[in-house]
């Protein structure tokens, strides 16, 4: 890469730091808000703990000690719904993506080929969710899935498969087919080739899809609200619940937002290098 001059370097870091400030400031603000007394929130802005306001830990105590049962339950529910659904999504999405990439399909009755099938799959994301909620509730009521983890996992699986199929199809398109063919020349079956060659090579793709579907499921609000009541309620619903008629309780919202961001951040950090690599090899194609 070309060498930058001093001015170029300064400019680069200025822009980076400016943007990092924009990104981080709201996080900082939520962090401090979770330690402020309500009056410090609702008058003029206070910036630095111990300097212009006296931090208190009451809000965290309330959430983690007094309300421990709820907080832990909601957190656990989110973990269950997001992780199980993203696992299923990775498996089914990759299989379908591989199929669409490596085979030719023709659904005679409809006259659909691979591209049409792929478009049909992504079109599952087109309808406004608010309309789907009611029929969903009916089936779920009938099948007794309301307020169950399984129900939520099933819903999120269905929501995230289309996206996974698209990413994985592009990913497999970019994997050279020669590798599999040479394996098959050596006498491996198609399945064996898939298991031995394709899967190990696809880890970055799996990680990317897993992360995206985890984030989407983790953050989803509307279906979590309508399909759960008590046992399976997730973090976003819990956060929104902090707006009561008593007013918006910024301090709890802030603390909960940070709690709910933490695991996603850790997973993101852990898999960070895979993500870029995954997308690098499987660059998305229109």
């Amino acid at each position: 890469m070309k060498k930058r001059g001093v001015i170029g370097t300064i400019a680069l870091y200025t822009v980076l730091i400016f943007w990092a400030f924009i990104v981080l400031f709201p996080f900082y603000w939520m962090f401090t808000t979770s330690f402020k007394r309500p009056l410090d929130v609702n008058r003029i802005p206070r910036y630095i703990p111990f300097v212009d306001f006296q931090p208190i830990t009451d809000h965290w105590q309330f959430l983690l000690v007094t309300q421990q049962e709820q907080t832990v339950r909601q957190f656990r529910n989110s973990v269950i719904a997001a992780s199980f659904s993203s696992m299923v999504v990775v498996v089914l999405g990759s299989m379908a993506g591989y199929g669409l990439s490596r085979f030719k399909y023709y659904w005679g009755r409809l006259g659909w080929r691979n591209d049409n099938i792929a478009f049909w799959i992504i079109s599952q994301r087109f309808l406004p969710p608010a309309v789907l909620v009611i029929p969903f509730l009916m089936i779920y009521g009938f099948l007794r899935l309301v307020d169950t983890h399984f129900g939520l996992i099933l819903a999120y699986t269905a929501f995230n498969i289309p996206f996974a199929v698209w990413i994985m199809r592009d990913f497999f398109d970019s994997l050279p087919i020669d590798l599999e063919e040479s394996a098959r020349v050596d006498g491996a079956t198609r399945t064996q080739a898939f298991l031995r060659i394709v899967i190990p090579l696809s880890t970055p793709g799996f990680v990317t899809v897993a992360l995206f579907s985890f984030v989407f499921a983790w953050n989803e609000y509307l279906f979590a609200l309508m399909l759960t009541n008590f046992n399976a309620i997730t973090m976003p619903v819990y956060i929104a619940g902090q707006q009561s008629t008593r007013g918006t309780e910024w301090w709890y919202i802030s603390a909960l937002a940070l709690i709910s961001v933490a695991p996603v951040m850790l997973i993101g950090l852990f898999f960070q290098r895979y993500i870029t690599r995954g997308l690098t090899t499987g660059a998305l194609r229109a």
Partner: peptide
Amino acid sequence: MNAQIGMLPIGKFSLIFW
């Protein structure tokens, strides 16, 4: 509508603990 206590507790105790 119903909140008898406001959203702004001051003093040593936060609203909730109060």
